[in-house]
Design a protein around this nucleic acid. Structure first.
Lengths: 200, 200
DNA sequence: TCAATTCTTTGTCGATCGACAAATAATGTG
DNA sequence: CACATTATTTGTCGATCGACAAAGAATTGA
């Protein structure tokens, strides 16, 4: 276990790949683009990351465990469900409209188009999106069972409503809708949850 | 002004191209795919439609003036704003989850990823999406001025909220979320408008 | 009938796609 | 030191991309 040491910073290179995929999507980024952005020859990329698809996959995981994990964090850390959703939505807008970063959510934007070869890439991101909807549902279901929500509240409908809204925020942001336009939509978006609360 | 008559049905061929672009997006469809789906040689496609980009453009216009025009129709035909938005959202879900058709909205799905060459395609669809948001805004603004909405209602925030939700519905549908899951989210989504109504 | 026009057939073009082979260089270990 | 191991350099591979050139076929109008 020795060998010549790697001369570039693997994490740095991965972050640059993530940003490029985030902005243009899997198929919008060519190996030549990656060579330019990462600053290393293609053979080195293959040696370090195996393939374009594996590199993309790792870049998505970096995103999901970093900035992209805001939903998981808000749901886990906020005991009050309204606080959780307020924070979650606010963090989403702030991330999707962050200056000097690609607009929108990487997991929503990076693989909606797909050639036949790359259907697997799209399907996997779709699964991530469904996972997020499922975690919203789980939190709302829990709130329903603990009495945080009214007995007649519909956790599933609320979950899919917020999942849809989150995905839509990403499209809006990617289209250049600015932060100060998107933030005021959140008080609208929170009304369904508020009217499902027991003490509201 | 004569010449050999065209042997294939141009409208039929265009509709097939629309369906393919709808399902896989601009860059997800190659000329070879179009040749297969439309059943005509590539030189004939170029003779009839000029280029892949022009064909895509025309396919988008076909979609927008057909099934994709549900929002325009609902806003124009329903005098009551709540009726308009109820119908608009319902039509969206029905279209996006229509059996034997691609899922989701063509204008939302067909060009979110883009290589540098095709940035123009993406930008144009983004403009269409902004136009739809603008038409929602116009209708809400009108409702505000005629007193259909409360004086303190925020037409812009409502418009961007519904634009985002519509875009999100498309992502959800494209991920395979079924119609009977998406329809119950609409009563949630209508709450913000209902609470902005004057007589509510 | 023939000239002008338009469509269809056939084949191919240069560019780019993702991916790798082979040779060389740099490390730790024995 | 020699050796095994891993990284880098350099060049290139076959496949596919969108696009079109050239020639033949079918139509209308003169």
């Amino acid at each position: 276990m020795a060998g010549r040491p790697r001369e570039f910073d693997r994490d740095e290179a991965l972050a640059k790949a993530r940003d490029l995929f985030w902005e243009r999507g899997y198929e919008g980024v060519s190996m030549a683009d990656l060579v330019d952005a990462m600053g290393i020859a293609s053979a080195r990329i293959y040696a370090a990351f195996e393939s374009k698809e594996a590199l993309f996959q790792e870049a998505v995981m970096l995103y999901a465990s970093g900035e992209g994990g805001f939903a998981t964090r808000a749901l886990a850390e906020e005991p009050n469900i309204l606080d959780a959703f307020e924070r979650l939505l606010r963090d989403a807008v702030l991330l999707y409209t962050r200056p000097n970063h690609p607009y929108g959510c990487m997991i929503v934007m990076a693989a909606t188009n797909y050639t036949v070869n790359n259907q697997a890439v799209r399907t996997r991101l779709g699964r991530y999106r469904r996972d997020r909807a499922a975690s919203l549902h789980a939190r709302l279901q829990e709130a329903s069972e603990t009495g945080e929500l009214k007995p007649d509240a519909d956790p599933r409908a609320l979950a899919e409503f917020y999942a849809a809204f989150l995905h839509g925020l990403s499209v809006q942001a990617a289209d250049g809708v600015p932060r100060d336009i998107l933030l005021p939509t959140l008080s609208q978006a929170l009304l369904p949850l508020k009217s499902a609360l027991s003490k509201g």
